[in-house]
Structures are given as C-alpha cells and as structure tokens.
C-alpha cells in the first residue's frame, strides 16, 4: 500500500558564481532560490490498483514519483510504501519496485539488450530459474526477443521502451512506477505498451502508478485518476466523472473526397472549415461519434478522420472555472 500524507517538496536551486574561482566560492557561501514542486499532496493507493497520475507539464508528477521511488527526500509530509520509507529504506524498497522514466534509460547504452538483462539479474540477485522464466514471459509479451542482441543505442524509441519495461520487471516487483512511458511513441508501440500494462495489472495484480499527460492513456488503462496541477491535488477519482462534467467535449477532424457538407446537426459546433475539410466540436452525450460520422458520410464520402480528446490543460482550466463534480 502506498500512503502519501501532506507531501511537500521544495527544490533549492543554488545561485552559482561562475568560473573556477566562482566554483570555489560556491563551496563556502551559497544562496538559494526555492521552487515548490509539490505542495501538500495526500493520497492512498491499495495493492493491485492501476492509477493514472495526471497533470500538465511542471505539475510535479516526476518529483512525486522520485520521492515514491526513493530518489528524493521529501521536504515535509510523509510517504510510506508497504510500510517502508522509500529514501531511508532505499535498498529494501527498491528490491520490490520497478521504475521506468520515459526520458532516461535503465539499460547499458553500448551493450546488447540481453547483457543489460543479465546485469540486472545480478544487481537484483534474482535466482537463475526465476529469472529465466520471467525473462521468457516478458520477452514474449513485449515482443522483445528479436531485439535481444541489438545494442541499446541502435534501438528505436518504441523498441527501447519495450525493452525498458521488460528490464524494470525482471525481478518481478509488486509495484510499477512509470513516468511518461508513452511519450513520443508511435501508435503501434503505444498500443503494445498499453496492452502489456493492462495485462500485468490484471493477471499478476501488479500495482501501477502511471504518470502521464496523455488522457488517452488514462482512459484506456486507469479506473482511477489523480490529477495534480502546480504541485497541488486537484482531483482524485474516476476519469469518467470528470468527463461527464467537462471533458465530454471531443474534437472531430474529417477530410472528405469532395466538398464538405454545408449544414451540420444542431448540437455540433463548427471549429474550422476548408473546401474538403471540417473540424467539429461535439459532446458524445448529445450526439454519439458513430451517429455524427454516419450523418456526415451520408452527405459526402469520408476520406479520413480523427477524434481528439480535449488536452489535460483544458480540463484543468475547466475545473478551476466551474468546480469539481460532486462525489458519487
């Protein structure tokens, strides 16, 4: 169980003097600017939950994850994970968690993937038989097998992320902390990663905390969403409730194989219009996407279409403007 109570984190950023002598001076006298990255967050996560940790850039997601994984010490408040204090009990704590930071690799850059895995087995002291079984299972689910002999530096981002996920789970942790693992991935890689995460959580009961600023990750995977902004907790509950209240709006972009239809259903708002192109806003509560698409294709052949979620920034703005939905 993960328990976070009134967590606060201030970064002290040293105001540096420049140059060699400046560096010496820094050792003696240092002035700091303080940045409050996390400002009094509390939440509890039960074993087996899959929680989306959402917020705009700079909200404090990475900082919170670093505290939960024992990299950083909180400035104030308390964090316990299965009764352990992450930074204080670092060794014991890290044995039982898997961590992936989207922007940073866990693997040895110039070595084949398989060598990184062997090294990790020794770092985590995983018994040989367990290691083999776990590795085979992960390689199959993540389709990593063909990549094992490739040096990490030659992998594409999507390939690397699959290898990273397998690496983070080789020691069969019961908790998984992911910091923007889908960032920059193409649709196919994203889908592989999501399918895999859903299965790990469902079949092995792995607790997952997934930091992301992509709401489609949450929609697909997380029954519960913790939303933070500027270091403070804004919402904790199902994404659906938020959706029903504000986020219901979707954006539809359609390209036609001829002139775009002139008239539109009543509940649909026109955003943009080109000769053979429309960008529309609608609420699935008022007209379903299927109905809207059918309505349009009755009038003109559709060449291509995309449906977009509102970005997290707009939802946060809406919450500030109109308040939270009442608890269920």
């Amino acid at each position: 169980m993960i328990e976070v109570v009134a967590l606060r984190k201030d970064y002290r950023i040293a105001v540096h003097h420049r140059g060699f002598w400046g560096a010496l001076r820094n050792l003696v006298e240092t002035r700091y600017n303080v940045v409050r990255a996390v400002d009094g967050i509390s939440f509890t996560i039960e074993p087996g939950e899959f929680v989306g940790f959402v917020g705009p850039n700079g909200a404090g997601k990475s900082t919170t994850i670093k505290i939960l994984t024992g990299v950083l010490e909180p400035t104030d408040g308390s964090v316990t994970v299965n009764g352990l204090v992450p930074r204080r009990d670092r060794i014991e704590h890290t044995r039982d968690i898997g961590v992936v930071f989207g922007q940073r690799t866990q693997l040895w850059w110039d070595l084949p993937v398989t060598e990184s895995y062997d090294l990790l087995r020794h770092i985590y002291s995983v018994p040989e038989a367990e290691y083999r079984a776990q590795r085979e299972r992960l390689c199959e689910l993540l389709e990593v097998g063909p990549l094992l002999d490739t040096p990490v530096r030659k992998l594409s981002l999507g390939q690397r992320m699959r290898c990273e996920l397998a690496a983070a789970l080789l020691h069969a942790p019961t908790m998984l902390f992911l910091d923007e693992p889908t960032i920059g991935l193409d649709v196919v890689a994203k889908e592989t990663v999501r399918t895999f995460l859903a299965a790990e959580n469902r079949e092995r009961g792995t607790t997952v905390l997934l930091a992301t600023h992509d709401l489609s990750d949450v929609e697909r995977l997380c029954p519960r969403m913790i939303l933070i902004d500027r270091g403070a907790l804004v919402y904790d509950g199902p994404l659906e409730a938020i959706r029903r209240r504000f986020g219901a709006e979707r954006e539809l972009r359609v390209d036609f194989e001829g002139a775009a239809p002139a008239e539109l259903p009543d509940s649909v708002e026109e955003q943009e219009r080109g000769p053979e192109r429309l960008v529309l806003r609608f609420r699935p509560g008022e007209i379903s996407s299927a109905k809207l698409i059918a309505w349009l294709s009755d009038r003109q052949t559709i060449a291509d279409l995309e449906i977009h979620e509102p970005p997290i920034e707009r939802i946060v703005a809406e919450i500030y403007r109109r308040g939270l939905p009442p608890p269920e």
């Binding site: 670092r90 060794i91 866990q106 770092i123």
Partner: peptide, 12 residues
C-alpha cells in the same frame, strides 16, 4: 546528467 537517479533506483 541525472545518472545518479538510476543508481539510487537499484537495491545496491
């Protein structure tokens, strides 16, 4: 480069 993070994430 923040590589110390990676070191801290491992039980060694």
């Amino acid at each position: 480069d923040g590589e110390l993070d990676r070191v801290l994430l491992r039980p060694r």
